[in-house]
Simulated assay, not measured.
Amino acid sequence: MQFDPQGVAPEDLSHAGSVVDKAIEYMLEQGITPISIASALLGGSLGMLARSMDDRAVAGVLRSALASVEGGELAEMRRAAAEGQSGGN
């Protein structure tokens, strides 16, 4: 997750993230494929955004997510996960 230098993240963001992590863990244990999990979470997220923001604001969130991907944040997460699985060697 990205550092929040301006302090604009809601107080409950960490809690919500923990709940989502547990849900993902549960779905993996149930044998649901990662792409199905991700698709369901993305669909649910878009639905939640649509209920709480106008289309322009939702597009801004999506542009921010795309910038994170293009900026290499996901690659860094994969690299950190791979290092964690290999014991940091």
Rank of each mutant, 00 (worst) to 15 (best):
V8C: 09
S39K: 04
S36T: 05
G17P: 00
S36I: 03
R51K: 13
G43V: 04
T33C: 11
E76A: 12
T33Q: 10
A80Y: 13
Q30I: 01
A57P: 08
Q2T: 11
R78V: 14
M53W: 15
N89D: 15
V20N: 00
V19Q: 03
E70C: 09
G47T: 02
R63L: 15
M48I: 12
V69W: 12
I35F: 14
G47W: 05
A16T: 02
R51N: 14
A16S: 04
L66H: 11
E76P: 04
Q6E: 14
A67N: 15
E29N: 07
G72C: 02
D55N: 15
L62H: 05
G87F: 02
R51W: 15
M1V: 06
L62E: 08
V19E: 06
S68C: 13
A75H: 11
A9C: 08
A81Q: 12
D12E: 09
D12C: 05
G44I: 01
G44F: 01
L49T: 03
V58A: 02
D55R: 14
V58S: 01
S45D: 13
V69M: 13
S86H: 12
L66C: 09
A81S: 10
A50S: 10
A82E: 09
L28P: 00
L13V: 09
A16G: 01
E25N: 04
L42H: 10
L41V: 01
A57T: 12
L41S: 00
S86F: 09
G71V: 04
A81H: 06
D21R: 04
Q2C: 06
L28M: 03
G44K: 00
R79C: 06
D21I: 00
Q2P: 04
D12Q: 08
S68Y: 06
G17D: 02
A9S: 08
Q2V: 07
E70Q: 09
L41F: 02
L66I: 08
E73W: 12
R79S: 10
A23V: 06
I37E: 01
G7A: 00
D4H: 03
M48F: 14
I32A: 08
S52T: 11
H15Y: 08
S68G: 10
A81Y: 13
R79I: 03
E25Y: 03
M53K: 13
Y26I: 07
M48H: 15
E29S: 09
L74A: 08
M27P: 00
L42C: 12
G47M: 05
N89W: 15
Q85N: 12
L49F: 06
Y26R: 05
A50I: 03
M77K: 14
A82P: 02
Q2L: 10
A40E: 09
A65T: 10
S45G: 15
P5R: 00
S14D: 11
Q30Y: 04
R51T: 13
G71L: 07
A40G: 07
R79M: 06
S68H: 10
P5L: 01
A75L: 15
V20F: 00
I35S: 14
G43D: 10
G31P: 02
A80G: 07
V61S: 04
E11D: 07
V19G: 01
I32Q: 09
L46H: 08
D21Q: 07
A38H: 06
G84L: 02
A59N: 10
Q85R: 11
A65F: 10
D4L: 02
G71A: 06
G47L: 05
L41I: 00
E70L: 11
R56C: 08
F3Q: 12
H15P: 03
S68P: 05
E73V: 09
